[in-house]
Design a protein around this nucleic acid. Structure first.
Length: 160
DNA sequence: CCAGGGATCCCCT
DNA sequence: GGGGATCCCTGGC
């Protein structure tokens, strides 16, 4: 798993940095809900709201290791290798079929079809976020230290 | 490398 | 209320 963190209060790269809007509304609400938005007119991005209501933060899911359902993921992109299926925030959403329709979904609902489940705790590495023009000083990109081959872009050795 | 694609946002009337 | 810039990217050149 590879993620990036964003928060409104002091992070200019965060969608909620300037103000609360219709698009970023989910970021201001209950933590654990999916915040989904469209980027570059064609790529859906999956985030998870990560602050108590009234303040805004979210975690962008940038990449993951597929462990099941690879055939289903491949329906959208038949010819790609296993490692490419979820490697990148746009690809991940395409594989899962995530769209703005999923915005606001409670991912902590244990009976939900689309949900987050508790897993093992793993060591992570951290470094600067990707694809942003502001807030580059914040080292809020995180990756599972033992599975760096699944990340969306290579992780430099200097990360700790 | 670079353009596509479209929602949103900003800033000006 | 509208026009232009921007954007947490990707695949194909």
């Amino acid at each position: 798993m590879e993620t990036e963190a964003y928060r409104a209060e002091d992070d200019p790269a965060c969608h909620a940095y300037r103000r609360r809007t219709l698009r970023n509304e989910t970021m201001w609400g209950q933590p654990g809900r999916a915040y989904v938005y469209l980027n570059y007119g064609m790529h859906w991005m999956l985030n998870v709201a990560a602050h108590e209501p009234g303040r805004a933060a979210a975690v962008l899911v940038r990449a993951a290791q597929p462990v099941a359902g690879l055939e289903e993921f491949r329906l959208a992109r038949p010819k790609v290798s296993d490692v490419e299926l979820l490697r990148g925030p746009g690809k991940l959403c395409r594989a899962f079929g995530i769209t703005r329709e999923d915005d606001g979904t409670d991912l902590l609902d244990p009976s939900g079809e689309f949900r987050i489940e508790a897993g093992e705790t793993v060591p992570v590495v951290a470094g600067p976020r990707i694809g942003i023009a502001v807030g580059q000083d914040l080292p809020w990109r995180f990756a599972d230290a033992s599975r760096l081959e699944w990340v969306s872009k290579p992780v430099p050795p200097k990360w700790r």
